[in-house]
């Protein structure tokens, strides 16, 4: 259904809005009495009884037994962050630019970098304070390398929140990468992992 007719909030012939039919409240005692008699013998109470009994007989249970069954979540769900690896080489995608640290509006990302022996910038520490994170997704949006993304891991029960934001936990494990389990997210420069992805020659 299109939403255009709903945009006109004025009640008219064309609009789908209408006034709810509410009877005027009785003022005199006689009117009140008539209302009581009407409501008593109209059988509305039995309508209520029938409705719940019908639902019981239909047994159309809507419960999701959560730990055993889980609802599918949207592909753009913003749960605990993940750090991805390059398909071709297995290196970390993060280039330590610090944009996510800069854009984070709740100021919860902290990273330490250094220049390693290959003259690549290496991220030594990367942490997200999940107690502060509001899961706005700016860090994932600003990342030029699609290195930090929001994952689908929403079950955050633990003794300490810090357990979820150890860099090694967020980073895709190497064996997951080789077995092709790293989920790719569409975005600028996103790749489709297949045979054409080869190791980037670094040594010229």
């Amino acid at each position: 259904m299109h939403s255009e007719p709903l945009n006109d909030r004025n009640v008219s012939e064309q609009s789908p809005y209408f006034y709810v039919d509410i009877e005027t409240y009785p003022t005199t005692s006689w009117d009140k009495f008539k209302q009581v008699v009407k409501r008593t013998f109209k059988g509305e109470l039995f309508v209520g009884l029938w409705v719940v009994m019908r639902e019981m007989i239909k047994f159309d249970i809507h419960t999701v037994q959560y730990p055993k069954e889980k609802l599918p979540i949207g592909p753009r769900y913003r749960a605990v962050h993940k750090l991805l690896r390059l398909w071709e080489s297995g290196y970390e995608r993060c280039i330590g630019c610090g944009l996510c640290e800069k854009i984070c509006i709740s100021d919860c990302i902290r990273m330490d970098t250094k220049i390693d022996e290959n003259s690549r910038k290496e991220v030594t520490e990367y942490s997200i304070n999940l107690g502060r994170c509001i899961f706005c997704g700016y860090c994932a949006e600003v990342c030029p390398e699609l290195a930090i993304v929001h994952g689908q891991r929403y079950e955050n029960g633990s003794e300490q929140r810090a357990h979820f934001v150890i860099k090694d936990d967020m980073l895709t494990p190497l064996d997951w990468l080789t077995s092709g389990q790293q989920a790719e997210f569409p975005g600028f420069g996103a790749i489709t992992p297949n045979e054409s992805v080869t190791k980037t020659p670094l040594a010229y």
Partner: peptide, 8 residues
């Protein structure tokens, strides 16, 4: 009550 409210 649960069955009448479509719960388990």
């Amino acid at each position: 009550l649960a069955f009448m409210q479509r719960r388990l």
